[in-house]
Structure formats: C-alpha cells, structure tokens
C-alpha cells in the first residue's frame, strides 16, 4: 500500500522517536511472526516454505547432483523466481547475487566433496509466491531451513579413487541418508549464513521493516550473520522498491557499528528459533 504524505509524516515521526513506535506495535528488534514447513517435496533433497503474516511467501528446494569437481566453478548454484518479475530484471538479479555470493563464501563446501574427483553440487531454487516488503531476509531464512533439512544419500563406494577410476555409488536406503550436519566434525554445527534487513530512521535501527515502514526509511542496511558473528557483506540499500522514497539520505557511520551490535545480539535468537522450528516440524509430507 502506498502511503499518503500525511501518513508518511505520521509514521516517520513515530518511528524516529526513542524508543520507536512501530505500526504493528513490535519492538525495534522484533521479527514479524512467520509460519514454516520443511521437507515437503519428495523429489528434492531438502525443501522449506516460509510464510509471513502479511502473506509473503517463499518456497525453496535444494537438489543435489553428483558432478566432477574439476569441471565446476562452484558447488552451489542459486536461482530465484519472483512472481510478477522478469528473471533478468535488476530486482531479481540483485537478490540472486546477494544469496549466491553469501553462500559461496560462507558454506562448508569441503563437506560436499565425495571422492578426490566427484562432489555434490547443490542447486538452490527459490520461488517467491508473493511478497510485500523487500524479500531478501525471507529468502535467506527459507534457505537456512532448506539447507538445514537437506539430506544427501550415503556414499558406499570407495572414497579414494585417485588410482582406479570409479563412479561413486550410493546406498539405496533413503533412511541412511545424512544431513549435512552429520558430516561435520565433533563440536562443529552446520548453520548456514543468513541475511537480515535493518531499517535506518533518525537515530534508530529497526529489524525487519514492513512494507509501510520501508516507505519512510532514511536508509536500509543488509547485514549477514554466520557462525555466531555478523560478517561481511554489509551493505546499504533503498528498501522501498515500489515507491520513490523522498526521505532517503546518507548513512551515519555510527549506525553501522550499532547495526553490527544489534545483529550480534539478536541473530542468535533467530537461528535458535529456526532450529526449534525444524525440531518441532514432525508432520511429514504436507505443504499446507
């Protein structure tokens, strides 16, 4: 919904107060409620769906394919399809770049190696059925769930194929398939990287701005979080993509450090909420 000048001014003033007053009465570090479902696509290695209360919805499938590692430039490939947008539009290619770039640099790719020649390549395909606010954090949280619930078939052939050329063979029993988590060493946990969006308004930072809030923000911050730390890339962006935002201005550098601190403080809670969600998601096979 596009706001009128009077509504914009009212919303700006309430968000710029300290503490900010948000239209849906959330506190500044609170996410919108979401519902999620995992492992509902029998044809994929992993799948997840997240729906926000405003109706934004994203479905992600992870498919693995055995490839010759030497012939591939990367072992992860992402693709994003957003209803109502062309695949070659700036909006879609930016989102695709953000997600691919994050996963390429922050994913334990070594665990995808099967033998000295062969490896799994993961294909992440994302469908955004509908969205109102900037969908990057929605996509990224869904990809977290999909990757966490991805199961790869168990390799039964020899790992060492340097001397004898051998195609990898896998256990027929799907019950033997392992989560990526299971490949990791003792003490390590597999937590894929996530993005969260922060809105900058006056002296305040608000997590997960809604579509109305995006229209009055002075700037937007995208921060990424991996291994219990805020990591690079950290970028700023105009989150209001469907209206011209007249409030948009430069970013005060102290707000970047504030944003990093905010991320370090609240992202672990997001991660643990998603992990609990996976544990509680017992009913299998149905998407809705």
């Amino acid at each position: 919904m596009i706001l009128s000048p009077a509504e914009r001014s009212y919303l700006y003033d309430s968000l710029a107060q300290s503490p900010p007053i948000r239209p849906d009465s959330r506190s500044d570090h609170q996410f919108r409620p979401l519902e999620a479902k995992t492992a509902f696509l029998p044809g994929s290695n992993g799948s997840a769906r997240i729906r926000l209360m405003d109706g934004s919805e994203c479905i992600i499938s992870v498919k693995a394919k055995v490839v010759l590692a030497s012939q591939e430039s990367s072992l992860i490939e992402c693709d994003i399809d957003i209803a109502g947008f062309r695949d070659d539009s700036n909006f879609v290619s930016n989102l695709k770049f953000y997600l691919t770039n994050l996963l390429l640099h922050n994913f334990p790719v070594r665990y995808l190696k099967l033998t000295s020649r062969y490896a799994f390549k993961l294909f992440l395909d994302c469908i955004v059925v509908s969205h109102s606010s900037y969908p990057l954090s929605l996509i990224s949280l869904t990809s977290y769930l999909a990757l966490k619930t991805t199961r790869l078939p168990l390799l039964v052939s020899d790992v060492n194929d340097e001397e004898i050329a051998e195609q990898p063979t896998f256990s027929d029993d799907w019950d033997n398939a392992k989560y990526i988590d299971d490949y990791l060493k003792e003490g390590e946990t597999f937590e894929p990287p996530i993005f969260i969006t922060l809105g900058v308004i006056g002296p305040n930072l608000i997590i997960d701005p809604s579509t109305e809030e995006e229209q009055v923000l002075e700037n937007g911050l995208i921060i990424s979080f991996y291994n219990n730390n805020v990591i690079t890339p950290i970028s700023n962006i105009n989150l209001a993509t469907n209206s011209n935002n007249s409030n948009f201005k430069g970013l005060n550098r102290t707000l970047i450090t504030k944003g990093i601190a905010l991320g370090n403080k609240y992202c672990p809670a997001i991660i643990s909420a998603l992990n609990t969600l996976i544990e509680q998601d017992d009913e299998e096979g149905t998407i809705f």
Binding site: L41, G43, S44, I59, S61, K63, K65, D79, D81, A83, G84, D87, F123, D125, I127
Partner: peptide
Amino acid sequence: NLSVANFSTTERKKRS
C-alpha cells in the same frame, strides 16, 4: 502466468 519450478522434475532443468 504459468511457472514450472526448476526442481519440479527428478532431473533439475532450467525452464524459460
């Protein structure tokens, strides 16, 4: 608008 997901078949395939 008909969109067939890349992952809809056993073998993943990019569709235009």
